[in-house]
Design a protein around this nucleic acid. Structure first.
Lengths: 150, 150
DNA sequence: ATGGGTGCAAACCATTTGCATAGGA
DNA sequence: TCCTATGCAAATGGTTTGCACCCAT
């Protein structure tokens, strides 16, 4: 299990380096660490959260660089900015199709897959709107952790 | 058509006043104008956009009041903050179930209904996550306006 | 060697807050 | 009258930017 995880991570880091070279982005220590941290995170962290985590390993990184890196990677489609009602931006590096369940109490965002939704055709009337390229479901509710705490 | 619209609007304003009294919120000129403007808007405006629009009619309103009003109305469930990847918050007063199509070029958000999605049961595995109370689909793509402009 | 990337500090933008006043109940 | 809501201005929090130096290519 840990090996599988490690393997996947190093695979993703290799793909990342390749993608950087393709996009003419220099493979810097900072970019590697930002990406690595985001791949490993399951909680859709903000720039500040990522910064604090990376700082424990890489004492010289600055918050500005984290912001700049996130913007760059987003622009190149390597990471995604998550749709939220919150004021601070949150990110994810999971690029395979998935959806989000958001706890309205603690704000935690949980990933899940939903094949029957993915297969439901979009309403015909949307042809008048434009060309849909991506679809996401966002469920809202109270997570079991928060219910337990009452 | 205009009459129907007007009628619906005044109906909604009456409901709004009633809701304010129930919630022990004073029915002020400013609150009425913020709510009226948001009910009439189809474009999910930001606080600043609402402020500018209201200013044309009510020259004394301040931006702070718009922010405060939006926060208050949201807290009481009278309006909704829209999930976006943008830095400024956007709002809507449409409280009946609907979904959003977002143009990735111009950022416009268009409402639509999607019965087959509303009826699709959520994945069983979400029982382990918690209790879902609301579901939203967000479609992303390019609207016809933007495609036309090329 | 060279140009993009980084750190630092200052600027910026959206939003929030403290305080005295005004206006709805 | 009483207390909440407002306007003003200042503070805040998140994010961006200018500039000089550094480092991946």
């Amino acid at each position: 299990m840990k090996n599988a995880m490690q393997h996947t991570l190093s695979q993703r880091m290799t793909e990342f380096e390749k993608a950087c070279r393709t996009a003419d982005l220099k493979v810097t220590h900072q970019r590697l660490e930002v990406y690595r941290e985001l791949v490993q995170a399951a909680d859709h962290p903000s720039a500040e959260m990522l910064y604090k985590r990376i700082l424990e390993r890489l004492h010289t990184i600055s918050l500005d660089t984290v912001y700049r890196t996130l913007a760059t990677l987003e622009k190149h489609g390597l990471i995604t900015r998550v749709q939220t009602i919150e004021s601070q931006a949150r990110f994810e590096a999971k690029m395979v199709c998935h959806h989000h369940a958001v706890c309205s109490t603690c704000g935690a965002i949980t990933d899940f897959t939903w094949d029957s939704f993915d297969e439901t055709p979009v309403p015909a009337v949307l042809g008048e709107w434009g060309k849909v390229s991506k679809r996401n479901a966002i469920l809202e509710g109270i997570c079991n952790n928060c219910s337990a705490k009452n």
